[in-house]
């Protein structure tokens, strides 16, 4: 970068350097910006943080549309609370996985599923379960209050509740039976480790 150039009137040219410095600065900022955009995750698969994790699960206060109402924490099984809607395409896609998970869970008595219908009609929900199968309880969302209490952003969304009634994991988007089972195993192993460490 030279400053010995002179302009027509004979004054020193400081401008060209200023332009170069500014260009370099903007280049660096823009490069950082691009790197940031490049590394930012797709908004639909954000990490599943939630204030309800680690807390006692909020109540499921909605009317039962199918099956019996569920009292969380009163049984010794893992519970997958699934928020869904019949009009939501990923929900339809995840349904067979939920069925798989519910069947496995019922077989060995380790886990069960409860669904909360989100912004939906009772008749549509009944038709949906007739067509897609599945026989676990389905509740309505208590005019949206349940979804608000659980902090549901958009369906499908599922929460894994430990047998003691504490929410341990939030799954956004469709679930896979195998993944949820792996999660349960992980948390159980963790729990055992904690107990051993504590005793």
């Amino acid at each position: 970068m030279s400053t010995h150039e002179t302009d027509a009137v004979g004054g020193p040219v400081r401008h060209s350097n200023a332009v170069r410095i500014a260009a370099a600065a903007i280049g660096v900022v823009m490069a950082l910006f691009v790197v940031m955009l490049f590394t930012s995750k797709n908004s639909s698969d954000q990490p599943s943080a939630s204030p309800v994790i680690g807390q006692q699960a909020p109540a499921l206060g909605g009317k039962a549309l199918l099956g019996e109402p569920v009292d969380i924490g009163s049984n010794d099984r893992w519970l997958l609370v699934n928020f869904f809607a019949t009009w939501c395409v990923p929900c339809v896609k995840e349904h067979p996985e939920l069925r798989q998970f519910a069947e496995n869970g019922a077989k060995d008595g380790s886990a069960r599923v409860v669904s909360v219908a989100y912004d939906d009609e009772a008749s549509a929900v009944k038709k949906f379960f007739e067509k897609q199968g599945g026989d676990w309880p389905v509740l309505d969302a208590d005019r949206g209050r349940t979804a608000l209490d659980w902090g549901v952003a958009k369906v499908p969304e599922s929460f894994l509740v430990a047998p003691n009634g504490v929410v341990v994991h939030r799954l956004q988007g469709g679930v896979k039976a195998r993944e949820v089972e792996a999660l349960i195993e992980r948390y159980e192993a963790q729990g055992r480790a904690n107990q051993e460490g504590g005793s």
Binding site: E5, H15, S16, A23, G27, M30
Partner: peptide, 13 residues
């Protein structure tokens, strides 16, 4: 940005 930096001297008003 590169071109502006390269041509900076000619861009003097």
């Amino acid at each position: 940005v590169g071109l502006v930096a390269w041509r900076g001297d000619r861009l003097r008003s």
